[in-house]
């Protein structure tokens, strides 16, 4: 998850969750950039007020692994509503994310 930070709240080591643009639409800093004193200065120079940074604590990668049986059940549940197969990376991403959410709902007994 990402969160919006005011320019005054930025700290060295924070990671940008979104690219930062200047008022001409040019990219100042790329997504994934780790802030250092120089880059924070650049943001101030360009009068950037807020940026999106990554929230490390709730990163999806640190979540516990889901049990394969629950995942299979979730997959079947989603597939029963689809008359189509994912055919590109975006659709695979959409499908996998839906499976993950459904699996967690099944775990919680919803």
């Amino acid at each position: 998850m990402s969160q919006i930070k005011n320019i005054d709240e930025l700290e060295i080591g924070m990671i940008l969750a979104e690219p930062v643009h200047n008022s001409f639409g040019q990219i100042l800093l790329q997504k994934g950039h780790e802030l250092n004193s120089k880059s924070i200065k650049v943001l101030k120079t360009w009068n950037v007020r807020v940026v999106y940074v990554q929230d490390i604590n709730t990163d999806i990668n640190v979540q516990e692994e889901l049990n394969p049986e629950i995942l299979e059940l979730a997959k079947e549940k989603i597939k029963s509503r689809m008359e189509w197969e994912p055919r590109n990376d975006n659709e695979i991403d959409l499908f996998n994310t839906a499976v993950e959410i459904t699996a967690r709902q099944l775990l919680k007994g919803i």
């Binding site: 998850m1 990402s2 929230d55 709730t58 999806i60 590109n88 990376d89 975006n90 659709e91 695979i92 991403d93 959409l94 996998n96 994310t97 993950e100 959410i101």
Partner: peptide, 19 residues
């Protein structure tokens, strides 16, 4: 999909924020 050109892990990366 071509118009939006979303990254291939767009939903995976943003699901926490969405929820």
């Amino acid at each position: 999909w071509k118009e939006l050109n979303l990254s291939k892990d767009f939903f995976k990366m943003n699901i926490k924020k969405i929820l």
